[in-house]
Design a protein around this nucleic acid. Sequence first.
DNA 1: TTAATGTTTGAGCATATGATCATATGATTA
DNA 2: TAATCATATGATCATATGCTCAAACATTAA
Lengths: 121, 121
Amino acid sequence: MPVQQSGNDICDCRCIHQSRVATAKEDALSDEENQNMAQLFKAMGDANRLKLLWALEREEMCVCDIAAFLGITESAVSHQLRMLRQLKLVSNRREGPVLYYRLNDQHMGQLMKIAQEHSRE
Amino acid sequence: MPVQQSGNDICDCRCIHQSRVATAKEDALSDEENQNMAQLFKAMGDANRLKLLWALEREEMCVCDIAAFLGITESAVSHQLRMLRQLKLVSNRREGPVLYYRLNDQHMGQLMKIAQEHSRE
DNA sequence: TTAATGTTTGAGCATATGATCATATGATTA
DNA sequence: TAATCATATGATCATATGCTCAAACATTAA
């Protein structure tokens, strides 16, 4: 029978399950890990970026290809790619003046497959 | 040898790969599916929500538990839960005046596992 | 019915996001 | 070297997001 305490681990309402807060905290991810994971999901949580990632899984593309594909400016694409690069989710290779981007993380393919199943159920 | 055309499927730069735009479009997800998937990822792409979903995978929790766990107001929790409910990612059961929330989609567990691997690599 | 508890809702606000435009950079070509 | 092309960056703006507060709502107890 849990003893009523005042503290962060204790829910201040009368529901009888205060201990759940403490055990949830024990099993919680570290802040760093939680934020890394959230960042990954956030990167995939935009319609244009997801469409892009889906396309890049199939074939590398240059910036202007991507811009035409998504129907946004090359500048907007470049901003998105910058973010994805910083998260190491994509990488590029240069061929003359053209940069070809490709996926750089094998997990995104798996994630997209599962999300697709979710969408279809 | 691709014929230069003006049109949405053609990248307007000089890179030689205009056909990639057309083939990318062929293989693209439907807009609806793409948006459903992006919504799922977006829902998981916030540090507090992800922390919550991780905890709910282990055990159901009531709103005030969650608020104590996350360190935000019950109102803020309720707003987040509303969004997750609308996406059918969580559901609840009532016990007297208390609502217990739980996960309502088996895909999120898989997604979180993969994202965790990503984070640890 | 009245009061209390747990949850939800709406308004308001600060910050984040995603796009555009204008401009800068870097590589190639003349 | 200068000009051109592909891409990147910085400023800016409209909208989205996530939180708090105050008030409403639903369930239970007195």
